[in-house]
Computed example of a mutant assay.
Amino acid sequence: MKKPIRIAVVDDHAMVREGFISRLKENEELEVVLDAGNGIELLEKLKKRTVDVVLLDLEMPEMDGFETTEKLSQKYPDIKTIIVSSHNEEAFINHLLKNGARGFILKENGSETLVDAIYSVIENGYYFNDRISKAMLNGLLKSETIKPSFNKVDLTPREIEIIRLMSKEYTTREIAEKLFVSIRTIDGHRERIFEKTKARNAIGIIMYAVKHNLLD
């Protein structure tokens, strides 16, 4: 059995921390090894415990999430920091990325998104929710602000064609109509694309495609 992913949960509200811990306990491959109420407490606890991923709130007393992200990047560059916030503005995401953040989820996101984000930063280096604009994502990739670690895999010509249509924001139904096949057929292709690339959502697919020059 492989070692679980070790997680720290950081939020100044104890009930929020308990909620995250409860949700993560449902997955045997994830282990919350510490929690903290602010950045100072987190950094103190990291002297004694090793973690792989930090789930980090932004608005905290003493040391907020912005400063904590920067400190983590400087002192613990191997730790993947996922920002948990109600904010989703591009300038805000850009700033945190430059200071070392690796993922962004919204506070209202469910357990499935939370778990996907954790696996994605471990496997591929980054996680973004589907609300990030494609233009911003392309800019981040081309400027090398982010360098996702997707390994190149063998894709069929049809799978590459579907990825290109996904990158243009075609829905599954629209892709099926354009390629003159059933929605079920496209669903099958999409499932294999996600399985092969290890992407966790459509944004992950686009990161893979840009990294490996698959887009027109």
Rank of each mutant, 00 (worst) to 15 (best):
K198P: 01
K71H: 08
K198R: 10
H13I: 09
T197L: 08
I122F: 04
E31I: 08
E31C: 08
G204H: 03
I186D: 07
G37R: 06
A135N: 02
V33M: 11
E169M: 05
H87W: 05
T185C: 06
L30T: 05
K3F: 11
D57T: 12
T50L: 08
F150W: 03
V121E: 06
V84H: 09
T81V: 15
E144M: 02
R184I: 08
A209S: 00
R164Y: 03
E90F: 05
F92C: 09
G125W: 12
R102W: 04
A36Y: 02
I82Q: 09
A91G: 12
L46V: 02
M60C: 00
L97V: 04
E62N: 13
E29V: 14
K98L: 15
V9M: 12
K211Q: 02
S85I: 09
F180P: 00
A14V: 14
L179V: 10
V153W: 07
D64H: 08
E108V: 13
R190Q: 13
E31H: 13
E18A: 14
R184D: 06
N201S: 06
S86H: 12
T156C: 03
L34T: 08
R192L: 15
P148A: 05
I162G: 03
G204E: 04
S143H: 08
A202C: 10
V121S: 01
L140F: 14
M136E: 10
K107T: 10
T81Y: 04
D78R: 14
R6V: 04
K178I: 09
S143P: 07
V16Y: 03
R173K: 06
I7C: 05
D187L: 14
T145R: 11
E26I: 15
V115W: 01
S85Y: 08
I193P: 01
N99H: 13
K2A: 10
D116H: 13
G188E: 12
K211C: 11
H189I: 09
V16A: 09
L34A: 03
A101G: 08
A91T: 13
A8W: 08
I162T: 02
A101Y: 04
K198E: 04
G139P: 07
A14P: 00
N109K: 10
I193G: 06
S143W: 09
V53I: 13
E144K: 14
K98A: 11
D116R: 12
G39A: 06
N109D: 14
R173S: 02
M63C: 02
L58I: 15
I206C: 04
K196N: 06
N109Q: 11
H13F: 11
K178A: 13
S85N: 02
